[in-house]
């Protein structure tokens, strides 16, 4: 999921200081799991804004905020509340914010959250980055552990000299990705394969931005 965290409230207030009325848009997917854009957070935001003398014309938690057409349909019943608001505050990720930008061309849209990374929830409200969305997965060669993400240097062929007692030079809290990969491949009996494979320099063109994908099959005429 996309991991988000709330922006500092004062920073948000500074961004929206010229507006008086708002519509709040959350998301039931990642932002709800992150505690940044579910019903309770929208309610909290409503109360906080009202305490600052602002008006909230309506709130809505979209099913999937990054799904543009679905969100458009869902928001139809909220047309009046949205048109009464001077601007929209989106409490999801940057993708959700830009759904609102696409749907409401003439209305200012502000993000309430910072989008952090693609991560896994390991425990309640604890998230780890596991995938960098590089566009060309190498997990098949690294025992299912991504060194592009788990190693701060993104090394592809083994640990650097900064590995200390199995931990990373940049923080003792980070376990060396290559020690993890080595241990896992050993456990799987695939050490020889790991040692015999030198991964070539990565082709970063697969992550050239902005990326698009048309996954559906076009109907043949």
């Amino acid at each position: 999921m996309i991991i988000t965290k709330k922006k500092d409230f004062q920073e948000l207030m500074e961004n929206i200081k010229n507006y008086k009325s708002f519509f709040l848009l959350g998301c039931s997917e990642c932002a709800t799991l992150c505690g940044t854009g579910g019903e309770p957070q929208l309610q909290e935001m409503k109360e906080a804004l009202e305490a600052e003398g602002k008006e909230v014309t309506g709130t809505f938690v979209a099913k999937t905020g990054c799904q543009v057409l679905g969100t458009k349909v869902e928001l139809k019943p909220h047309k009046d509340a949205i048109s009464k608001a001077e601007c929209i505050i989106v409490m999801s990720c940057g993708a959700g914010t830009q759904t609102a930008v696409e749907l409401y061309e003439d209305k200012p849209v502000y993000p309430a959250n910072d989008s952090m990374f693609l991560g896994n929830m390991t425990r309640l409200q604890m998230f780890d980055e596991r995938c960098s969305l590089c566009g060309k997965c190498i997990l098949d060669k690294t025992g299912g552990i991504c060194p592009i993400t788990a190693c701060p240097k993104g090394l592809l062929n083994g640990p650097c000299g900064g590995c200390k007692d199995g931990h990373c030079e940049i923080s003792p809290d980070i376990k060396c990705a290559w020690v993890r990969i080595y241990e896992r491949m050993k456990r799987l009996g695939k050490l020889q394969e790991l040692c015999d494979t030198t991964l070539e320099a990565k082709d970063w063109s697969a992550s050239q931005k902005p990326r698009t994908l048309i996954a559906r099959e076009e109907k043949k005429k």
Partner: peptide, 21 residues
């Protein structure tokens, strides 16, 4: 470069061999 006293040593030796190759 190589770190002969790396801990753990085995992954370091793997990289050493890759560098030789």
């Amino acid at each position: 470069v190589v770190t002969p006293e790396a801990n753990p040593l085995e992954p370091q030796l793997m990289k050493f061999e890759k560098k030789v190759k």
